[in-house]
Design a protein around this nucleic acid. Sequence first.
DNA 1: GTCTATACTTTGATAGAC
DNA 2: GTCTATCAAAGTATAGAC
Lengths: 191, 191
Amino acid sequence: MKNKIESRKEEIIRVATKLFKEKGYSAVTMRDIAKSMGIKAASLYNHINSKQDILKTIIISLAEQFTAGMLEIKSSGESCVNKLKAIIKLHVTLSSQNIYGMSSLNNDWMHLEEQLPYYIKLRSEYEDDFKNILEQGIGKGELINVKPDVMMFSILTTLRSLYLWIPKKEDIDLHDLTENLSQILLDGINK
Amino acid sequence: MKNKIESRKEEIIRVATKLFKEKGYSAVTMRDIAKSMGIKAASLYNHINSKQDILKTIIISLAEQFTAGMLEIKSSGESCVNKLKAIIKLHVTLSSQNIYGMSSLNNDWMHLEEQLPYYIKLRSEYEDDFKNILEQGIGKGELINVKPDVMMFSILTTLRSLYLWIPKKEDIDLHDLTENLSQILLDGINK
DNA sequence: GTCTATACTTTGATAGAC
DNA sequence: GTCTATCAAAGTATAGAC
């Protein structure tokens, strides 16, 4: 457990991330962020360059963590089912570590300016890797033979929405959640 | 197939809905909407009262369609599994009929003003009905005994995100999609 | 029904005092 | 590092001519 003192810049990112989740990037003003910190908007610019910079920091950092996680999983040599379980765990872990940031990643990425092409590249590669794992699973007979597109959509949108749901369950056990989700996503709910 | 001539007001709603999906309610200006229609922003106000009015029309209309669909399903007397299949079909149908509007319903509801409490009530009741169906299914032994919260979250977030995915598959067959989704959500992907 | 003109507010951001 | 003061641009909305 790191215990580094939070810099003013980190505080801005943290406060802004929470506000972005509640109202979205476009509806949050620099004055909103400043007010939440008890300072004036002009003071923010001593620590950050622009509002856009805040969004970029939130989104790109998260996107790169997912990319790094996927890289590890796809080169793990595990079975496809185990790779899928690892992806589920990756989403539960990163989402619970950054509940508010996941909202920007999902809903505010289109407001990126300079970094938009880079974000789109990362997301696209992540989805390709995900689909490859599913296709291998179908090819090897590990998974049922249903369109991998529909499979990926179904699983990935559930995982991408985790941030909406995790905070509501205060006493949730993340390991239990990962297990329950794996069972539901892999084996269904039908008896 | 209705063939009513589209009123200017309906055109505004339609154009705004598409723009709201692309950038979100807050980032779309009245000038953006007007420009997309080839008129000036001031002219919009001959047909609508405010920007907020547009959002209200989009969201409340859709939310009420889901409520009506759920009412029919829960009083149908079908088995729980069949009720779930009917819910999946309801989401596929309404989402495909109003792809852009589903984005506002999911992501811009917090920008509702006067109608916010009403929207929250409808959504909350919908989720309660959904959970009741799952709990009955567990009680009767139709469904596996996993936390109904996690089940509902998993299925409902997939269904709520359909709008993100349907437009990408131009030649998609909605009946096929409903069947594939039912299989994946109910029986999983594991062989 | 659309236009121009405009009122009024809010926005992101900067300059310079302390 | 924070403040006050300020700016230019952009926002919603209205009034009144055509």
